[in-house]
Simulated scan of single mutants.
Amino acid sequence: MTKQITRQQLSAALVERHGQERQQHLYTASVGIAGLGGLGSNIAVQLTRLGIGYLILADCDRVEISNLNRQSYRLCDIGRPKPEALTEQLLQINPYLCYEPHFLKLTPQNIPEIFAGCNIICEAFDDPEQKAMLTETVLQRLPQAKLIVCSGMAGAGSANAITTSRRLNRFYLCGDGTADIAADGSLLAPRVSVCAAHAATMVMRLALGFTTP
Protein backbone atom coordinates (compact mmCIF):
# COMPACT_ATOMS: atom_id res chain seq x y z
CA MET A 1 0.00 0.00 0.00
CA THR A 2 2.82 2.43 0.83
CA LYS A 3 4.22 2.05 -2.71
CA GLN A 4 0.94 3.38 -4.11
CA ILE A 5 1.06 6.54 -2.00
CA THR A 6 3.64 9.09 -3.13
CA ARG A 7 5.55 11.49 -0.92
CA GLN A 8 3.57 14.34 -2.43
CA GLN A 9 0.22 12.70 -1.66
CA LEU A 10 1.10 11.96 1.94
CA SER A 11 2.53 15.43 2.44
CA ALA A 12 -0.61 17.00 0.99
CA ALA A 13 -2.74 15.00 3.41
CA LEU A 14 -0.71 16.27 6.38
CA VAL A 15 -0.83 19.86 5.12
CA GLU A 16 -4.61 19.57 4.74
CA ARG A 17 -4.92 18.68 8.42
CA HIS A 18 -2.11 20.76 9.92
CA GLY A 19 -1.67 23.72 7.58
CA GLN A 20 1.30 24.46 5.30
CA GLU A 21 3.29 26.64 7.71
CA ARG A 22 2.86 24.35 10.69
CA GLN A 23 3.71 21.28 8.69
CA GLN A 24 6.91 22.85 7.44
CA HIS A 25 8.00 23.50 11.03
CA LEU A 26 7.24 19.89 11.93
CA TYR A 27 9.20 18.59 8.95
CA THR A 28 12.31 20.53 10.00
CA ALA A 29 12.28 19.31 13.62
CA SER A 30 14.85 16.74 14.77
CA VAL A 31 13.78 14.81 17.87
CA GLY A 32 15.61 12.21 19.94
CA ILE A 33 13.79 9.60 22.02
CA ALA A 34 15.80 7.87 24.76
CA GLY A 35 14.02 4.65 25.69
CA LEU A 36 11.46 2.93 23.47
CA GLY A 37 9.13 1.31 25.98
CA GLY A 38 5.61 2.35 26.91
CA LEU A 39 6.46 6.03 26.75
CA GLY A 40 9.02 6.17 23.97
CA SER A 41 7.30 3.86 21.50
CA ASN A 42 4.00 5.73 21.84
CA ILE A 43 5.72 9.11 21.60
CA ALA A 44 7.44 7.96 18.41
CA VAL A 45 4.18 6.83 16.81
CA GLN A 46 2.47 10.15 17.57
CA LEU A 47 5.42 12.20 16.28
CA THR A 48 5.46 10.15 13.09
CA ARG A 49 1.76 10.84 12.58
CA LEU A 50 2.54 14.54 13.04
CA GLY A 51 5.22 14.36 10.36
CA ILE A 52 8.25 15.20 12.50
CA GLY A 53 11.03 15.12 9.95
CA TYR A 54 13.82 13.33 11.81
CA LEU A 55 13.55 10.86 14.70
CA ILE A 56 16.52 9.35 16.52
CA LEU A 57 15.40 6.24 18.40
CA ALA A 58 17.64 4.68 21.05
CA ASP A 59 17.17 1.65 23.32
CA CYS A 60 19.21 -1.40 24.34
CA ASP A 61 16.29 -3.78 25.00
CA ARG A 62 14.50 -6.42 22.97
CA VAL A 63 10.72 -6.77 22.85
CA GLU A 64 9.32 -9.08 25.56
CA ILE A 65 5.83 -10.45 26.09
CA SER A 66 5.49 -8.29 29.23
CA ASN A 67 5.84 -5.18 27.03
CA LEU A 68 2.67 -5.81 25.04
CA ASN A 69 0.25 -4.42 27.63
CA ARG A 70 1.36 -0.83 27.03
CA GLN A 71 4.05 -0.58 24.34
CA SER A 72 3.59 -0.17 20.60
CA TYR A 73 4.78 -3.66 19.69
CA ARG A 74 3.13 -6.84 18.42
CA LEU A 75 3.45 -10.55 19.11
CA CYS A 76 5.55 -10.91 15.98
CA ASP A 77 8.07 -8.41 17.42
CA ILE A 78 8.97 -10.50 20.49
CA GLY A 79 12.72 -11.03 20.62
CA ARG A 80 13.55 -8.25 18.19
CA PRO A 81 15.56 -5.14 19.14
CA LYS A 82 13.08 -2.40 20.00
CA PRO A 83 14.65 0.23 17.70
CA GLU A 84 14.41 -2.17 14.76
CA ALA A 85 10.83 -3.28 15.44
CA LEU A 86 9.62 0.27 16.09
CA THR A 87 11.29 1.71 13.00
CA GLU A 88 9.54 -0.93 10.90
CA GLN A 89 6.17 0.21 12.28
CA LEU A 90 6.95 3.88 11.73
CA LEU A 91 7.92 3.25 8.12
CA GLN A 92 4.48 1.74 7.60
CA ILE A 93 2.91 4.99 8.89
CA ASN A 94 5.11 7.37 6.92
CA PRO A 95 7.99 6.00 4.83
CA TYR A 96 9.13 9.48 3.76
CA LEU A 97 10.42 10.70 7.13
CA CYS A 98 13.93 9.99 8.45
CA TYR A 99 14.42 7.43 11.22
CA GLU A 100 17.75 6.67 12.87
CA PRO A 101 17.56 3.61 15.16
CA HIS A 102 20.30 2.85 17.72
CA PHE A 103 20.33 -0.52 19.46
CA LEU A 104 22.67 0.30 22.35
CA LYS A 105 22.85 1.39 25.96
CA LEU A 106 22.94 5.16 26.30
CA THR A 107 25.81 6.53 28.39
CA PRO A 108 27.25 9.96 29.18
CA GLN A 109 29.92 9.18 26.58
CA ASN A 110 27.66 8.40 23.60
CA ILE A 111 24.62 10.60 24.29
CA PRO A 112 26.26 13.83 23.02
CA GLU A 113 27.19 12.15 19.73
CA ILE A 114 23.94 10.27 19.13
CA PHE A 115 21.68 13.24 19.88
CA ALA A 116 24.01 15.97 18.59
CA GLY A 117 21.62 17.18 15.89
CA CYS A 118 18.45 17.14 17.97
CA ASN A 119 16.43 20.25 18.74
CA ILE A 120 14.36 18.32 21.28
CA ILE A 121 15.07 15.18 23.33
CA CYS A 122 12.46 13.04 25.11
CA GLU A 123 13.56 11.04 28.14
CA ALA A 124 11.45 7.88 28.28
CA PHE A 125 13.26 5.53 30.66
CA ASP A 126 11.72 3.47 33.47
CA ASP A 127 14.85 3.43 35.62
CA PRO A 128 15.40 6.49 37.89
CA GLU A 129 19.18 6.29 37.55
CA GLN A 130 18.97 6.32 33.76
CA LYS A 131 16.57 9.27 33.93
CA ALA A 132 18.97 11.24 36.10
CA MET A 133 21.97 10.31 33.94
CA LEU A 134 20.33 11.39 30.69
CA THR A 135 18.94 14.60 32.19
CA GLU A 136 22.32 15.63 33.57
CA THR A 137 24.14 14.76 30.35
CA VAL A 138 21.73 16.62 28.08
CA LEU A 139 21.55 19.75 30.24
CA GLN A 140 25.34 19.91 30.60
CA ARG A 141 26.57 18.79 27.19
CA LEU A 142 23.81 19.50 24.66
CA PRO A 143 23.00 23.19 25.17
CA GLN A 144 21.01 23.43 21.93
CA ALA A 145 18.45 20.80 22.95
CA LYS A 146 15.25 21.20 24.90
CA LEU A 147 14.58 18.24 27.20
CA ILE A 148 11.22 16.63 27.98
CA VAL A 149 11.24 14.25 30.94
CA CYS A 150 8.40 11.90 31.92
CA SER A 151 7.78 10.98 35.56
CA GLY A 152 4.66 9.78 37.34
CA MET A 153 2.27 7.67 35.30
CA ALA A 154 2.08 4.42 37.26
CA GLY A 155 -1.09 2.94 38.69
CA ALA A 156 -4.78 3.49 37.99
CA GLY A 157 -5.13 7.09 39.14
CA SER A 158 -7.03 9.75 37.24
CA ALA A 159 -5.55 10.75 33.91
CA ASN A 160 -6.44 14.32 34.82
CA ALA A 161 -3.56 14.33 37.33
CA ILE A 162 -1.04 14.06 34.49
CA THR A 163 0.17 17.49 33.38
CA THR A 164 3.08 19.18 31.63
CA SER A 165 5.12 21.87 33.38
CA ARG A 166 8.17 23.92 32.51
CA ARG A 167 10.76 23.59 35.27
CA LEU A 168 13.80 25.30 33.74
CA ASN A 169 14.54 27.31 30.63
CA ARG A 170 14.76 24.18 28.45
CA PHE A 171 13.49 21.46 30.80
CA TYR A 172 9.89 20.21 30.74
CA LEU A 173 8.27 17.58 32.98
CA CYS A 174 5.30 15.40 32.02
CA GLY A 175 3.42 13.24 34.51
CA ASP A 176 1.73 13.54 37.89
CA GLY A 177 5.08 13.77 39.67
CA THR A 178 4.17 11.18 42.31
CA ALA A 179 2.94 7.84 40.90
CA ASP A 180 6.00 5.60 41.12
CA ILE A 181 6.22 2.11 39.60
CA ALA A 182 8.32 0.92 42.55
CA ALA A 183 5.58 1.91 45.00
CA ASP A 184 2.48 1.14 42.92
CA GLY A 185 3.75 -1.92 41.12
CA SER A 186 1.77 -1.42 37.90
CA LEU A 187 2.02 0.34 34.58
CA LEU A 188 -1.30 0.45 32.72
CA ALA A 189 -1.65 1.42 29.07
CA PRO A 190 -4.11 4.33 29.42
CA ARG A 191 -2.06 6.40 31.90
CA VAL A 192 1.22 5.62 30.15
CA SER A 193 -0.33 6.63 26.83
CA VAL A 194 -1.69 9.87 28.31
CA CYS A 195 1.78 10.79 29.57
CA ALA A 196 3.27 9.92 26.18
CA ALA A 197 0.68 12.17 24.54
CA HIS A 198 1.69 15.02 26.87
CA ALA A 199 5.32 14.58 25.82
CA ALA A 200 4.41 14.43 22.13
CA THR A 201 2.25 17.54 22.51
CA MET A 202 5.15 19.40 24.10
CA VAL A 203 7.41 18.32 21.23
CA MET A 204 4.80 19.62 18.80
CA ARG A 205 4.52 22.95 20.58
CA LEU A 206 8.29 23.44 20.76
CA ALA A 207 8.63 22.55 17.08
CA LEU A 208 5.98 25.16 16.28
CA GLY A 209 7.81 27.85 18.26
CA PHE A 210 5.85 27.80 21.53
CA THR A 211 7.80 27.60 24.79
CA THR A 212 4.99 27.08 27.31
CA PRO A 213 3.08 23.82 27.97
Rank of each mutant, 00 (worst) to 15 (best):
S11I: 00
P190H: 07
T212H: 10
G209A: 08
S72K: 01
G51T: 10
L104T: 15
L26C: 08
L90K: 07
T137C: 14
T28R: 05
T137S: 05
I78W: 02
K146I: 00
S11A: 11
A183H: 11
I78H: 02
K82H: 09
C195T: 14
T163C: 13
L57K: 02
A132D: 10
G155D: 12
T6I: 01
T48A: 13
T135D: 02
V194C: 11
Q92A: 12
M202W: 01
L187F: 01
L50V: 06
G175K: 04
S165G: 04
D127V: 09
T201D: 09
D180M: 12
G51P: 07
I65F: 15
L39Y: 14
V15G: 07
L14K: 13
L68A: 03
K131Y: 02
T137E: 04
F125R: 03
R170D: 09
G32A: 04
A159D: 08
K131W: 03
P143E: 05
I148K: 03
Q23D: 12
Q9G: 07
R167I: 15
C98V: 15
F171A: 01
V63F: 06
G177F: 05
V63W: 06
Q46E: 11
P95K: 15
F103E: 08
Y96D: 05
G177L: 05
F115L: 05
G155K: 11
I93S: 09
